[in-house]
Simulated assay, not measured.
Amino acid sequence: METSKNLVFFNPKPSTIDGAILIDTGISAGFPIPSGDFEEEKVSLDEELIKNKNSTFFAKVKGQSMINAGLNNNDLLVIDRSLAPEDKKIAVCYVDGEFTVKRLRVQNNEVWLQPENPDYPIIKITEENDFIIWGIVTNVIKKV
């Protein structure tokens, strides 16, 4: 496990559980639907959330700079280091000794890290920065 003031990283451990039960009829968030008969199957979150096992990590968000992108304090991020960084993707970056999660903005060979909260400044990456795009966020897991 690696820790910074902005993110806490975890390596995924292989699951020994066959999966939890998935109710495949859908759950209405509007008007109730008749339950009737529903089919059960098992679902593995590892299979749903991890496409590249050897390059996937989890990290907990610390802070509020990405709240308008739906990333809140203590949310668990699924990060794939094998994915290519692209404009508008949400990325975990290492900037000048600290990890941060921001939206990538890439234009005319320039890179900015854009927060999704107007209370935080946009970070322009220059040659003076120690900068690495560490991985791309593929999913977020929330507690309710």
Rank of each mutant, 00 (worst) to 15 (best):
M1W: 10
E2C: 06
F9H: 03
F10W: 12
N11A: 11
N11W: 03
N11K: 14
K13C: 11
K13F: 08
P14V: 09
P14G: 05
S15D: 12
T16Y: 12
D18R: 15
L22T: 04
L22V: 08
I23P: 03
T25P: 06
G26K: 08
S28I: 07
A29E: 11
F31A: 14
F31L: 15
F31S: 14
P32Y: 06
I33F: 08
P34D: 14
D37N: 15
D37W: 11
E39N: 15
E40H: 11
K42P: 07
S44C: 12
D46F: 01
L49S: 10
F57R: 08
K62M: 09
Q64S: 14
S65E: 05
S65K: 09
M66P: 09
M66D: 05
N68D: 15
G70H: 03
N73W: 07
D75S: 03
D75A: 04
L76A: 07
L77F: 04
L77Y: 01
D80A: 03
R81D: 06
L83Y: 05
P85C: 07
P85M: 10
P85S: 08
D87V: 11
D87F: 08
V92T: 00
V92D: 00
C93F: 00
G97W: 02
T100Q: 01
K102I: 00
K102C: 00
R105A: 11
E110I: 06
V111W: 01
E116V: 04
N117T: 02
P118F: 09
I122R: 11
N129E: 03
D130M: 05
D130L: 05
F131K: 10
I132C: 06
W134K: 06
T138D: 03
V140R: 03
V140F: 02
I141R: 02
V144H: 10
